[in-house]
Simulated assay, not measured.
Amino acid sequence: MAEVMRADARRNYEQLLAVAREAFAEHGTEASLRDVARRAGVGIGTLYRHFPTREALLEALMSSGFDALRVRAEGLLAAPSPHDALLTWLRELAAGSTTYRGLPESVMAALREEGSELHASCHAMRAAGGRLLARAQESGAVRADLTAAELLALVAGIAWVSEQSAGQAGLIDRLLSVTATGFAADRPPVTTPA
């Protein structure tokens, strides 16, 4: 009987995450938690048992998203074209980054706190993306002077612009395409002013 409860609790947990992801994509991080519970087919008490605060739910969603992006990057390491694999992953990263409009400072603090689970998930995802970048650089498709931190900052900027320009279909793809032209291996190295 206890095993059935654990499986049921896990199903509720996964269902809550899936519905919350949709609700936050539609309404931002201030989406109604009562509505999330209702749409997931559970009571508000069940939601709060799994996620005692809105921040806990957001952290679980972000951690789950980071884990999925890490797994995706690891899978793309075997793709035939390192350049295409990197662009595929960057598109998915940018699209996922637009989901959580209005993150509370408490979640951002957890993301920066080195001992937090959320920080660890983000770090693992970024490291997997770094391996995709290194593979593309080793193949000669991407300039060698580009760092993973710089590339991720570019994608974060693209995601932010896309979020601010709601309704412009294809903007992420267009901006990533222009950016990819800039980080192509046949470009001269970037020098920073002193």
Rank of each mutant, 00 (worst) to 15 (best):
M1C: 06
E3H: 08
R6N: 09
R10W: 09
R11F: 08
N12F: 04
Y13E: 14
Y13T: 06
L17S: 04
A18Y: 11
A20T: 11
A20E: 04
R21W: 09
T29F: 07
E30F: 07
E30R: 10
E30W: 07
A31Y: 04
R34S: 02
D35E: 12
V36G: 05
A37V: 03
R38P: 01
R38G: 00
R38K: 04
V42G: 09
I44M: 11
G45I: 02
R49L: 14
H50I: 13
H50N: 14
R54G: 02
A60D: 05
L61G: 05
G65T: 00
R70H: 00
R70P: 00
V71P: 06
V71C: 14
A79Q: 13
D84V: 07
L87N: 10
T88L: 12
W89K: 13
L90V: 13
L90C: 12
E92H: 03
G96M: 09
S97H: 09
P104I: 06
V107Q: 07
M108V: 11
A110M: 14
A110R: 15
E113T: 15
L118N: 06
S121F: 01
H123V: 08
R126P: 04
G129S: 10
L133Y: 06
A134T: 15
S139E: 08
V142F: 00
L151H: 03
A153H: 12
G157H: 03
G157M: 03
G157P: 05
A159C: 14
S162G: 15
Q164Y: 06
Q164H: 08
Q164T: 07
A166K: 14
G167D: 05
L176R: 05
L176V: 06
T179A: 15
T179M: 11
F183C: 09
A184E: 00
D186G: 03
P188R: 08
P189V: 07
P193W: 13
P193H: 08
A194V: 08
A194M: 11
